[in-house]
Design a protein around this nucleic acid. Structure first.
Length: 618
DNA sequence: GACTTTAGAG
């Protein structure tokens, strides 16, 4: 019956309880206060936490609220109310108000406890506010709260987060007691700054390691680019009785994706299913990315389709994945589907889309997307998007337009932008523009050899040997060393690495023989070694020998010897595939009746029946 | 009596 009454008169006067909550500013509270006095309602019926929350951040409201709290609670027990207020501020989006409120408390002689300090320290850490952090640190010591491990750990973390590793270490060394959190903090922060040796040292010195300790190491190493080290550590972790949690799994999957370690990735997938982790969006997103980067588009789609909830990260990963695998059309229609479902794309989504257009040579479509992100989504394209457009235009041979586009960019073009332009110049054999690009690149990224190599390839292609030699001298005089091409192939969970030109590994003799046989068959199917990519001015027959040194060919031969007939061969390469290897792999897929998957720096190539999925446009 | 610390995806 009560419910009925309520629904009949929805506009009846608010309940007294609701009235007591009805203030949103110190001023409204004062009015309410007056009303309470008139109707002799005791002050203690006010919701005190709300009084603190509404008035605390306001300079004028604070002393007023403090008076109310002191009247009702007595002077001693207002701290916890202020604490809840500080917590809300520190964890919300106004951590700087938390710091201001802390100082007001101090000025009114409200005695802070460990919780008070912890919230304001959190605020300082979030803001990377070293100056206030130091003051609070001093305050904590003055209050005699130094023995509190919670606070001590937070202060260590604060210094390290603000980039003061020295102070963090000094404090760490002086601590009479440390717990796992203390050590974990040092590990995480060391790795964030790339000090892997330091992190290792903390990790081995700590008396006891938790799941989070292992996870911090694995995830941090992966973020430093030490993916294989991360995976090694994970294998060690499996030997302990600790169980990986969701965060561990994300880190390991990311490392698998980087290395292309499909077997381990699959194993982790199974483990995630069994542990019920797969419903976690973070995990599924990383699984999608792992399968994409390990060459299993089908399985990536399977995970993506099975997801109950997709975020923009999931969609972007899938769009990018399709583009990477040469399924540009599918990437675009997946994007359409996403938009129709009302999901708003972000900057990363557009990077994937622009890549898709670039790989397919869809110049107009790409331009349209670029315009769309500005016009329809009000986004500010960043340098990565500009780089994509330069790539799109130059690959398609619109070199003049690309050059104009670079000139009109609102920011300074970086090495990625010029690198994309140079790539286009190489494909379309424009020596003059390539020279200009290299000029910029040698300033922007002087230690990267790739650009010099591309330029000298262009010269070699035009048989301008004196220029080839000049570039090589230039490299030598500038101390630029060639990054060797490197390919890996995983067989039975073991990663085999081949470096260009390294013929000194086990089984080299057998491999070389196998290559000769394969080469014979390939030539009879029309393969002509493309020696123009060899930099040296030597006899053609000699150059052919150099071509076999390319790492993807070595990996291919190794794969052919060590896998059963018919098995797909998957190769991961650190650089782009050269033209000759691309031709060779096409023909090899035909004569050996194998599918060959190659992941290069940019994308996947699936060689099958003499054809590559990239349509020779890469 | 409870409220506080370390980590994760495209």
């Amino acid at each position: 019956m009560d419910a009925l009454c309520l629904s009949v008169s929805p506009s009846s006067a608010p309940s007294p309880q609701a009235l007591l909550h009805s203030f949103n500013s110190p001023w409204e509270l004062k009015q309410l206060h007056a009303h309470l006095i008139k109707s002799s309602v005791p002050l203690s019926s006010l919701p005190l936490p709300r009084v603190a929350a509404v008035c605390g951040p306001s300079p004028a409201g604070f002393p007023y609220a403090h008076r109310i709290l002191t009247i009702v609670q007595g002077p001693a027990s207002t701290t916890s109310l202020w604490n809840s207020c500080l917590k809300a501020l520190a964890e919300g989006d106004s951590p700087s108000d938390a710091i201001l409120l802390f100082y007001r408390l101090r000025d009114l002689d409200v005695l802070p406890d460990t919780f008070t300090c912890s919230f304001v320290l959190k605020a300082c850490t979030k803001l990377l506010d070293l100056e206030n952090g130091r003051i609070i640190h001093g305050y904590v010591e003055k209050l005699g709260l130094r023995w509190n491990l919670f606070l001590e750990n937070m202060i260590v973390n604060l210094y390290a987060s603000c980039g003061e590793m020295g102070d963090a270490e000094k404090l760490f060394d002086s601590m009479p007691k440390r717990d796992t959190v203390t050590w974990n903090t040092m590990i995480t922060q060391s790795l964030k700054r790339g000090y892997t040796d330091k992190a290792h040292s903390y990790f081995t010195r700590m008396p006891e390691r938790s799941v989070r300790s292992w996870t911090a190491m694995i995830s941090g190493l992966a973020q430093c680019g030490k993916h294989e080290e991360a995976l090694q550590l994970f294998r060690k972790m499996k030997g302990t009785d600790l169980r990986p949690n969701e965060v561990t799994v994300v880190a390991v999957l990311a490392a698998c994706a980087a290395v292309g370690s499909l077997d381990l990735g699959r194993e982790i997938h199974e483990f995630s299913d069994k542990s019920g982790f797969t419903k976690n969006t973070h995990i599924s997103n990383t699984l999608v990315d792992m399968y994409v980067k390990c060459g299993c588009l089908e399985e990536a789609l399977k995970v993506f389709n099975a997801m109950e909830e997709r975020t923009i990260v999931s969609w972007s990963a899938m769009v990018y994945g399709l583009a990477m695998h040469g399924k540009g059309q599918e990437a675009l229609s997946l994007f359409d589907q996403m938009v129709r479902m009302g999901v708003r794309p972000n900057g990363v989504t557009f990077v994937g889309l622009l890549h898709a257009c670039s790989h397919m040579g869809l110049v107009d479509q790409g331009r349209e997307f670029f315009a769309e992100m500005i016009r329809d989504y009000g986004m500010n394209p960043n340098i990565e998007h500009y780089g994509c457009i330069v790539d799109l235009l130059s690959r398609a041979g619109h070199l003049k337009e690309a050059r104009e586009f670079i000139k009109n960019m609102p920011m300074e073009p970086n090495e990625v932008v010029w690198g994309a332009f140079l790539g286009g110049c190489a494909v379309h054999k424009n020596i003059e523009l390539a020279e200009e690009a290299t000029e910029h690149l040698s300033q922007l990224d002087p230690h990267n050899d790739g650009y010099y190599i591309v330029l000298s390839n262009i010269y070699a292609n035009a048989k301008r040997w004196e220029d080839v030699a000049r570039v090589r001298r230039l490299m030598r005089s500038r101390g630029v060393k060639k990054t060797p091409g490197c390919s890996t192939i995983t067989i039975d969970g073991e990663v085999h690495r081949f470096v260009a030109g390294d013929l000194g590994h086990d089984g080299a003799e057998e491999m070389s023989q196998r290559w000769e046989v394969l080469l014979g068959k390939m030539k009879s199917r029309g393969y002509v070694p493309n020696t123009s990519v060899v930099l040296l001015d030597i006899e053609e027959s000699e150059k052919e020998k150099f071509l076999y040194r390319h790492s993807e060919k070595l990996a291919l031969v190794y794969g052919l010897i060590n896998t059963r007939a018919g098995t797909t061969i998957t190769i991961m390469k650190n650089l782009r595939v050269c033209q000759d290897c691309h031709e060779a792999l096409k023909v090899a897929s035909e004569v050996t009746s194998r599918e060959i998957v190659v992941r290069d720096r940019n994308r996947f190539h699936l060689f099958k029946d003499g054809i590559c999925s990239c349509g020779d446009y890469w």
